[in-house]
Each structure stands twice: as structure tokens, then as C-alpha cells.
Amino acid sequence: MSDTSASAPRLLDRAEEAAYELRAQEGSIWTGSRLLIGIVAFVFASLAFAYFYLRSSNNSGLWRPHGVTAPTMIGAPIFAIVVASALLNLYGTLRMRKGLSVDWEVSGWTAVGGLLLATGLQIWELTRLPFFPGSSGYSSTFIGWAALNSALLLTSAYWLETLLARAIRMRKAVAEDGGPARSTAPPARLFRASLEGCSQYVLFAAVINLLFWVLFYVVV
């Protein structure tokens, strides 16, 4: 947020300018990550709208003929892996706040692996469907879900991976200043801001997976 509350207005000196712009960048990452969640929320809200619209319309009696369901044996592990990855990353982030960056790195890499595995399973599930994509409203929305969820999981994994890779690269540079978890150097501060945003995004992905898992696998 901009600092607009200076009691005695005066120009910032050069050092204050650098600090001011750094705060603006941190704020941008904070705001940007939340806004990104809002944008993606509208994508999935559109899918949810399609789900309920077609379900309530039940055109030609073909919302969900014969109660067909996508393979639960694949869908449940996807959901479980995503939620576990998000919680693991959240745990790592909390450890990072306490200065334990290695803990976060371990949990982070595991979460990236989990998210990639979930993406792979989501795509593989498309080859094991017991229905034709255009056979019903349910089948259509499920294909839409699979496409959007794969993108959501891939972007989550990408963001987390880039942060892990950056943490490795900056480790030496900020080693004497407390490492990525404690350093006051601008790259470390921006890194932590991005990590906070990323953790929120991955958690959001888990919430989305929970909601649509209920819609596609639990609700009959």
C-alpha cells in the first residue's frame, strides 16, 4: 500500500525511495496474488454455473443418464493428493516463517511432485472414462473440469517450483543475512512475499478441488 499518511509531507530521500518502492513491490505481490485468486475463482464459478445450469435444465433427460460417474478410484486420489500437497506446503511455509527454510524446501518439492502427479492422474483419468464426452451434461462438464483443473494444478506447481529454484539460487547470496527465511535483502523479502501468495494460491486450488470433488463424485 502506498504510504500516504506522512504527518509532515516532504520528499523522500534516495534511501527512503528504495524502501518505498520495495514496499510497493511487496504490496503488489500481495495484491496481485489475491486478485489472481479472484480471477481464477471466476473461471471455476463459470464451470459451477454450467454444472448447475445443465443439471437444473436436464435437457432431453440427459443431465446424468443411469447415474454415470467419473472413476472414483482415480478422482479420490487426485483430490487427496492436491489437499495433502497444499497442506504440506502450508506447513512448510509456516516453518519458513520460523526461519527453517530447509523444512519448506523439502515440503515444497514434495508438494510440487504431488501437484504434478495429480495433474498426470487428471489427464490419465480422461482415458478411463466410462462415458463419451458428449453423452450428457454431466460428462461435458466433467471434461471441462478436467481441463481447467489440470491447468490450475500445473500453474500451482509452476509457481511453487520457481520459488524453490529461486531459493536454491539465492541461498549463498543471503546466507550471512539469515538465509531466504530471515534475510532483509530485497530479493529475499520479495521471495517471501511471493511465497505467501503462492501458498494462498495452492490452498485455493485445494478448496476448488474439494468443491468439485463433491459435485462430480459425491453428489448423485
Binding site: S60, L62, P133, G134, S136, G137, S140
Partner: peptide, 15 residues
């Protein structure tokens, strides 16, 4: 070949 907007297959053009 999904049917989001195909009424005859459980979709809806109004969607």
C-alpha cells in the same frame, strides 16, 4: 465432442 451447448445431448445453447 462434448455437449455443453448441444440441447439434444444434455447441454444447453442458453448456457
Amino acid at each position: 465432442q462434448t455437449a455443453f451447448f448441444v440441447d439434444e445431448h444434455g447441454g444447453s445453447s442458453f448456457l
